Amino acid sequence: MRQLALFDLDHTLIPIDSDYEWGQFLCRIGAVNADEFARRNADFFAQYQAGTLDPVEYLEFALGTLAQFKRSQLDEYHAQFMHEVIQPALLPAAFDLLKKHQDQDNLIAIITATNRFVTAPIAAALGVEHLLAAEPDVDTSNNITGKLLGVPTSGVGKVIHLHDWLQRRDQQLSDFGQSYFYSDSHNDIPLLEVVTHPVATNPNAKLSAHALTRGWPQINLFDQQ
Score class of each variant (00 low, 15 high):
E57G: 06
F61P: 05
F61L: 04
A62G: 06
L63R: 02
L63A: 01
G64Y: 03
Q68D: 01
F69P: 04
R71A: 09
L74Y: 00
D75S: 11
H78R: 15
A79P: 00
M82E: 11
M82Q: 14
E84Q: 15
E84P: 12
E84K: 15
E84A: 15
I86M: 10
Q87A: 15
P92N: 11
A93T: 11
A93W: 10
F95I: 05
D96V: 13
L97C: 08
L98Q: 06
K100V: 10
H101A: 09
Q102I: 04
D103E: 15
D103R: 12
D105N: 15
D105P: 06
L107V: 11
I108W: 05
I111W: 04
N115I: 00
N115A: 01
F117N: 00
V118Q: 01
V118D: 02
T119H: 02
T119E: 01
A120I: 03
A120D: 09
A120K: 09
I122D: 02
I122M: 07
A123L: 04
A123S: 14
A123P: 06
A125Q: 14
A125V: 08
G127E: 08
V128H: 05
L131F: 00
L132W: 02
A133Q: 05
A134T: 01
D137T: 05
V138T: 13
V138W: 00
V138Q: 10
V138N: 02
V138Y: 02
D139S: 04
D139V: 03
T140C: 07
T140H: 12
N142H: 13
N142Q: 14
N142G: 02
N143C: 08
I144Y: 12
T145L: 08
T145W: 03
G146S: 06
K147E: 14
L149K: 07
G150C: 00
G150H: 02
G150N: 05
G150T: 05
V151K: 14
P152W: 11
S154L: 15
S154R: 14
G155L: 04
G157N: 08
G157C: 07
V159T: 10
I160L: 10
L162I: 09
L162C: 09
H163C: 07
W165I: 07
Q167V: 08
Q167N: 13
Q167P: 01
Q171K: 14
L173S: 06
L173C: 07
G177Y: 08
Q178F: 07
Y180G: 04
F181K: 05
D184H: 08
D184L: 09
S185D: 00
S185L: 03
H186K: 11
N187T: 15
I189E: 13
I189C: 09
P190G: 08
L191G: 06
L192S: 08
T196F: 03
H197C: 13
V199Q: 06
N202L: 09
